[in-house]
Design a protein around this nucleic acid. Sequence first.
DNA 1: TCATGTGAACCGGTTCACAGCC
DNA 2: GGCTGTGAACCGGTTCACATGA
Lengths: 224, 224
Amino acid sequence: MQSAPEEDLIMASMPPAVVARLCEYRRQLPGWIADGHDRIFSRELAELIATSPAQVRRDLMTFGFTGSPVHGYDAHLLLRTIHEAMGPAPSDTMTLVGVGHLGHALLNYLARTRPDLGIPWAFDIDPDLVGQTHGKTTIAHMDQLEELLQDAPPRLGVLAIPRPHAQDCATRLVRVGVRALMNFVPVKLELPDTVHVESVDIACSLDRALYFARSEGSVEAGGR
Amino acid sequence: MQSAPEEDLIMASMPPAVVARLCEYRRQLPGWIADGHDRIFSRELAELIATSPAQVRRDLMTFGFTGSPVHGYDAHLLLRTIHEAMGPAPSDTMTLVGVGHLGHALLNYLARTRPDLGIPWAFDIDPDLVGQTHGKTTIAHMDQLEELLQDAPPRLGVLAIPRPHAQDCATRLVRVGVRALMNFVPVKLELPDTVHVESVDIACSLDRALYFARSEGSVEAGGR
DNA sequence: TCATGTGAACCGGTTCACAGCC
DNA sequence: GGCTGTGAACCGGTTCACATGA
């Protein structure tokens, strides 16, 4: 028994925990398919992202994806379905504020792994950087932020700047129309509730790793 | 009523969720103190890291820290106590594998925010990088990894290298004696259960942000 | 009245266990 | 036997509600 899921179910908003794992399934599946497999069992998919088979079945259940007890799940159909469920939409764009080492790393990484995600502009205050291009991205001065983004505000903004400027930048991005932020700066941003903020706190991850390394025996963790 | 907590309680291993928030308290408290406050209420501390007062009180309870209903908690004592509870120990060291843009960003960031954390060596395969120094860190060639780390293995290893080399590097680090890894590479590492792996998956965070930006109205998230 | 400290209720998420099917 | 699909149990974490004390 095999089914493409109902549109309704896809568009219903899914629990955060499920969304987090769908991201991982989506990244691991192409490799599985490239290895010559057309189908995959919950046990195998669980193995790929270090979770349990029951968890995999539950996850696929949340958007009504079904497989066959004999052959497992159709890997191609599953991958396509996750893409539909999670986006990004082909039209999604992003902007980056702060093109230091971290910003550079992000631009390189995204250009390689996410060619579908448009990043027309990045911003910095360093005059030496302004005017440079990285792949399809042009670096502009912070002063031009409103001017350049106003007409077609990107859905996502990434903050990779020193702490003192973070709140101000965030506010400006939101005012221009950005709907979600990925924040690499360790501050609590004060923003309207309608904006989704995904914080990546590297120092905090590091502290956790050090703490858990003291007590013996722990298993793989993390993600978000 | 005010108390320094029992040693036993400090050293007992704390729930991951609590550890995660202790990191944040620890980072926000110095600012609070610098603003001239000596004491802090659960309501205020909650505000600083965007959580609830009840949550704060529960957290402090897990290591037996108590305050006074009248004056709240002693901010200095609290900060000191969290430091003791969470480390890193002054002797803790770290090593970095992969000194690309991300690696550079990490070295800069840590040198600024964590002068206490020793990073004597970083490793790369690029001969142009080998021999350079960044702050107190010297870049060596991957071939020398065992030789240089064997005698005093760092507690923590950070992986910031391209995907194909990740598993191999991780195995070598663990063999040399590293107890915890911070992994920026989107692969599931196969390692003994005694090693703690903290994965930071930037692409995945980005996907989540984009997904939640579609559905209206979400609140601040993330951390770890 | 207002804050702390805490048992108890609650909730999302995960795992268990098993029916159904090949 | 193996797998999927799923109700039910379980568990960690969060919030509630209130006793206690200044």
